[in-house]
Protein backbone atom coordinates (compact mmCIF):
# COMPACT_ATOMS: atom_id res chain seq x y z
CA UNK A 1 0.00 0.00 0.00
CA UNK A 2 2.28 2.69 -1.23
CA UNK A 3 -0.48 4.97 -2.51
CA UNK A 4 -1.12 7.69 0.09
CA UNK A 5 -4.68 8.37 -1.05
CA UNK A 6 -7.27 6.43 0.96
CA UNK A 7 -9.10 3.60 -0.77
CA UNK A 8 -11.97 3.72 1.70
CA UNK A 9 -13.40 7.19 2.39
CA UNK A 10 -14.36 6.25 5.99
CA UNK A 11 -11.54 6.44 8.50
CA UNK A 12 -10.92 3.40 10.68
CA UNK A 13 -9.63 5.76 13.36
CA UNK A 14 -10.55 9.39 13.83
CA UNK A 15 -9.49 11.86 16.50
CA UNK A 16 -10.55 15.49 16.89
CA UNK A 17 -9.49 18.05 19.50
CA UNK A 18 -7.77 15.24 21.33
CA UNK A 19 -6.19 16.47 24.54
CA UNK A 20 -4.46 14.66 27.36
CA UNK A 21 -3.55 16.35 30.59
CA UNK A 22 -2.09 14.76 33.69
CA UNK A 23 -2.41 16.25 37.12
CA UNK A 24 0.69 16.38 39.22
CA UNK A 25 -0.13 17.84 42.61
CA UNK A 26 -1.56 21.26 41.93
CA UNK A 27 0.07 21.46 38.52
CA UNK A 28 -1.55 20.29 35.35
CA UNK A 29 0.71 19.08 32.55
CA UNK A 30 -0.66 18.99 29.01
CA UNK A 31 0.93 16.13 27.07
CA UNK A 32 -1.25 16.22 23.97
CA UNK A 33 -3.15 19.28 22.89
CA UNK A 34 -6.04 19.59 20.45
CA UNK A 35 -4.85 16.85 18.09
CA UNK A 36 -6.70 15.86 14.98
CA UNK A 37 -6.04 12.65 13.10
CA UNK A 38 -7.65 10.29 10.62
CA UNK A 39 -6.37 6.86 9.69
CA UNK A 40 -7.88 5.02 6.76
CA UNK A 41 -8.16 1.30 6.25
CA UNK A 42 -5.10 -0.32 4.74
CA UNK A 43 -2.71 2.55 5.22
CA UNK A 44 0.38 2.61 7.37
CA UNK A 45 1.01 5.63 9.54
CA UNK A 46 4.12 6.50 11.49
CA UNK A 47 4.03 8.95 14.37
CA UNK A 48 7.51 10.20 14.87
CA UNK A 49 8.73 11.91 17.97
CA UNK A 50 11.54 12.24 20.46
CA UNK A 51 11.58 10.42 23.74
CA UNK A 52 9.06 11.99 26.10
CA UNK A 53 7.08 13.61 23.28
CA UNK A 54 3.94 11.69 24.27
CA UNK A 55 4.01 9.06 21.50
CA UNK A 56 3.06 6.16 23.75
CA UNK A 57 0.39 8.27 25.43
CA UNK A 58 -1.09 9.01 22.02
CA UNK A 59 -0.95 5.35 21.04
CA UNK A 60 -2.70 4.41 24.28
CA UNK A 61 -5.47 6.90 23.56
CA UNK A 62 -5.90 5.84 19.93
CA UNK A 63 -6.12 2.16 20.93
CA UNK A 64 -8.67 2.97 23.64
CA UNK A 65 -6.31 1.82 26.36
CA UNK A 66 -6.68 5.19 28.05
CA UNK A 67 -9.31 7.92 28.07
CA UNK A 68 -8.55 11.45 26.79
CA UNK A 69 -9.00 14.54 28.96
CA UNK A 70 -10.92 16.17 26.14
CA UNK A 71 -11.76 15.66 22.51
CA UNK A 72 -13.43 13.04 20.39
CA UNK A 73 -12.14 9.70 19.29
CA UNK A 74 -13.73 7.13 17.00
CA UNK A 75 -12.47 3.62 16.44
CA UNK A 76 -14.13 1.50 13.74
CA UNK A 77 -16.76 4.25 13.61
CA UNK A 78 -17.64 3.91 17.30
CA UNK A 79 -17.19 6.97 19.50
CA UNK A 80 -14.89 5.76 22.31
CA UNK A 81 -16.15 8.51 24.62
CA UNK A 82 -19.49 6.68 24.85
CA UNK A 83 -17.85 3.49 26.02
CA UNK A 84 -16.51 2.49 29.36
CA UNK A 85 -13.29 0.52 29.71
CA UNK A 86 -15.07 -2.80 29.21
CA UNK A 87 -16.84 -1.43 26.14
CA UNK A 88 -13.56 -0.25 24.65
CA UNK A 89 -12.01 -3.66 25.39
CA UNK A 90 -14.91 -5.38 23.63
CA UNK A 91 -14.40 -3.12 20.63
CA UNK A 92 -10.74 -4.11 20.40
CA UNK A 93 -11.39 -7.84 20.79
CA UNK A 94 -10.20 -9.62 17.65
CA UNK A 95 -9.93 -6.40 15.65
CA UNK A 96 -6.87 -4.69 17.11
CA UNK A 97 -3.37 -6.11 17.35
CA UNK A 98 -0.39 -4.78 19.29
CA UNK A 99 3.37 -4.92 18.99
CA UNK A 100 5.33 -3.57 21.92
CA UNK A 101 8.85 -2.32 22.34
CA UNK A 102 9.55 -4.83 25.12
CA UNK A 103 7.66 -7.63 23.32
CA UNK A 104 5.32 -8.27 26.28
CA UNK A 105 5.54 -12.02 25.99
CA UNK A 106 4.49 -13.93 29.09
CA UNK A 107 7.59 -15.66 30.40
CA UNK A 108 5.86 -18.85 31.52
CA UNK A 109 4.14 -19.43 28.17
CA UNK A 110 5.72 -21.04 25.13
CA UNK A 111 5.86 -19.23 21.81
CA UNK A 112 2.74 -21.07 20.67
CA UNK A 113 0.86 -20.31 23.87
CA UNK A 114 1.80 -16.63 23.67
CA UNK A 115 0.38 -16.43 20.16
CA UNK A 116 -2.72 -18.33 21.23
CA UNK A 117 -3.45 -15.86 24.05
CA UNK A 118 -5.58 -13.32 22.09
CA UNK A 119 -7.41 -16.14 20.26
CA UNK A 120 -8.46 -17.74 23.51
CA UNK A 121 -10.70 -14.90 24.60
CA UNK A 122 -13.47 -16.26 22.39
CA UNK A 123 -14.27 -19.85 21.46
CA UNK A 124 -12.33 -20.72 18.31
CA UNK A 125 -11.86 -24.31 17.27
CA UNK A 126 -9.04 -23.46 14.84
CA UNK A 127 -7.07 -21.37 17.28
CA UNK A 128 -4.08 -23.64 17.52
CA UNK A 129 -3.84 -24.20 13.78
CA UNK A 130 -3.94 -20.43 13.22
CA UNK A 131 -1.25 -19.81 15.81
CA UNK A 132 1.01 -22.49 14.30
CA UNK A 133 0.42 -21.01 10.87
CA UNK A 134 1.36 -17.49 11.92
CA UNK A 135 4.42 -18.64 13.78
CA UNK A 136 5.45 -20.48 10.61
CA UNK A 137 5.02 -17.30 8.63
CA UNK A 138 7.42 -15.44 10.93
CA UNK A 139 9.93 -18.29 10.63
CA UNK A 140 9.42 -19.83 14.05
CA UNK A 141 7.59 -22.98 13.03
CA UNK A 142 10.29 -25.03 14.67
CA UNK A 143 10.36 -23.08 17.90
CA UNK A 144 6.73 -23.48 18.97
CA UNK A 145 7.46 -24.93 22.39
CA UNK A 146 10.24 -22.59 23.34
CA UNK A 147 9.81 -20.26 26.25
CA UNK A 148 10.62 -16.58 25.66
CA UNK A 149 13.84 -16.84 27.62
CA UNK A 150 14.97 -19.51 25.17
CA UNK A 151 14.48 -17.14 22.23
CA UNK A 152 16.61 -14.21 21.07
CA UNK A 153 15.24 -10.65 21.17
CA UNK A 154 14.47 -10.74 17.45
CA UNK A 155 12.71 -14.08 17.78
CA UNK A 156 10.68 -12.79 20.67
CA UNK A 157 9.55 -9.82 18.65
CA UNK A 158 8.60 -12.16 15.80
CA UNK A 159 6.43 -14.10 18.21
CA UNK A 160 4.87 -10.77 19.16
CA UNK A 161 4.25 -10.03 15.46
CA UNK A 162 2.52 -13.37 14.98
CA UNK A 163 0.41 -12.64 18.05
CA UNK A 164 -0.59 -9.21 16.66
CA UNK A 165 -1.78 -10.60 13.34
CA UNK A 166 -3.15 -13.99 14.35
CA UNK A 167 -6.63 -12.72 15.18
CA UNK A 168 -7.04 -11.23 11.72
CA UNK A 169 -6.85 -7.76 13.24
CA UNK A 170 -7.99 -4.85 11.08
CA UNK A 171 -5.70 -2.43 12.86
CA UNK A 172 -2.28 -3.04 14.39
CA UNK A 173 -0.62 -0.60 16.79
CA UNK A 174 3.12 -0.84 17.17
CA UNK A 175 4.99 0.95 19.90
CA UNK A 176 8.70 1.35 19.10
CA UNK A 177 8.82 -2.19 17.68
CA UNK A 178 12.57 -2.06 17.14
CA UNK A 179 13.42 -0.12 20.27
CA UNK A 180 14.93 -3.10 22.07
CA UNK A 181 16.73 -4.64 19.11
CA UNK A 182 20.05 -4.10 17.41
CA UNK A 183 19.82 -2.34 14.00
CA UNK A 184 20.26 -5.47 11.88
CA UNK A 185 17.65 -7.44 13.83
CA UNK A 186 15.41 -4.38 13.90
CA UNK A 187 15.64 -4.18 10.12
CA UNK A 188 14.58 -7.79 9.74
CA UNK A 189 11.68 -7.28 12.12
CA UNK A 190 10.50 -4.26 10.17
CA UNK A 191 10.68 -6.26 6.97
CA UNK A 192 8.52 -8.92 8.59
CA UNK A 193 6.10 -6.34 9.98
CA UNK A 194 5.49 -4.69 6.65
CA UNK A 195 5.32 -8.00 4.84
CA UNK A 196 2.69 -9.29 7.22
CA UNK A 197 0.84 -5.99 7.02
CA UNK A 198 0.69 -6.20 3.26
CA UNK A 199 -0.26 -9.82 3.30
CA UNK A 200 -3.11 -9.29 5.74
CA UNK A 201 -4.21 -5.94 4.38
CA UNK A 202 -4.03 -4.52 7.86
CA UNK A 203 -3.97 -0.89 8.87
CA UNK A 204 -0.80 -0.07 10.76
CA UNK A 205 -0.19 2.73 13.24
CA UNK A 206 3.24 2.82 14.71
CA UNK A 207 4.98 5.26 16.96
CA UNK A 208 8.73 5.49 16.80
CA UNK A 209 11.72 7.74 17.01
CA UNK A 210 13.40 5.67 14.26
CA UNK A 211 13.29 7.78 11.10
CA UNK A 212 14.32 4.87 8.86
CA UNK A 213 11.31 2.97 10.09
CA UNK A 214 9.03 5.98 9.65
CA UNK A 215 10.14 6.40 6.05
CA UNK A 216 8.71 3.00 5.16
CA UNK A 217 5.17 4.06 6.10
CA UNK A 218 2.57 5.54 3.75
CA UNK A 219 2.19 8.56 5.95
CA UNK A 220 4.21 10.21 8.59
CA UNK A 221 3.26 12.59 11.39
CA UNK A 222 5.60 14.30 13.75
CA UNK A 223 4.66 14.76 17.40
CA UNK A 224 6.28 17.63 19.22
CA UNK A 225 5.11 19.90 22.04
CA UNK A 226 1.88 17.96 22.21
CA UNK A 227 0.91 18.69 18.63
CA UNK A 228 0.96 16.70 15.39
CA UNK A 229 2.38 17.90 12.12
CA UNK A 230 2.33 16.07 8.81
CA UNK A 231 5.62 15.34 7.14
CA UNK A 232 6.35 13.58 3.87
CA UNK A 233 7.97 10.23 4.57
CA UNK A 234 10.57 10.66 1.91
CA UNK A 235 11.59 13.91 3.56
CA UNK A 236 12.18 12.34 6.92
CA UNK A 237 15.86 12.76 7.60
CA UNK A 238 18.26 10.02 8.60
Amino acid sequence: MSDSSPVNPYPILRAAHLTKRVESGERSLTILSDLALEVFPGESLAILGQSGAGKSTLLGLLAGLDAPSAGELELFGEPLGDLDEDGRAALRAGRVGFVFQNFQLLPTLTALENVLLPLELAPDGDAEAKARDWLGRVGLGERLDHLPKQLSGGEQQRVALARAFVTGAELVFADEPTGNLDPATGERIIDSLFALNREAGTTLVLVTHDRALARRCDRCLSLADGRLAAIVPEEVGA
Binding site: A63, L65, E85, D86, A89, A90, L91, R92, A93, G94, R95, V96, F98, Q104, L106, T108, L117, P118, L121, T167
Partner: peptide, 17 residues
Protein backbone atom coordinates in the same frame (compact mmCIF):
# COMPACT_ATOMS: atom_id res chain seq x y z
CA UNK B 1 3.40 -11.93 37.84
CA UNK B 2 -0.12 -11.96 36.43
CA UNK B 3 -0.46 -8.19 36.22
CA UNK B 4 1.18 -8.38 32.80
CA UNK B 5 -1.10 -11.21 31.72
CA UNK B 6 -4.15 -9.27 32.85
CA UNK B 7 -3.00 -6.09 31.09
CA UNK B 8 -2.32 -7.99 27.88
CA UNK B 9 -5.69 -9.69 28.01
CA UNK B 10 -7.31 -6.26 28.52
CA UNK B 11 -5.46 -5.09 25.42
CA UNK B 12 -6.74 -8.04 23.46
CA UNK B 13 -10.28 -7.18 24.48
CA UNK B 14 -10.96 -9.02 27.73
CA UNK B 15 -13.53 -7.40 30.05
CA UNK B 16 -13.03 -7.11 33.81
CA UNK B 17 -15.60 -9.84 34.31
Amino acid sequence: RHLDTAALLRCFGARQA
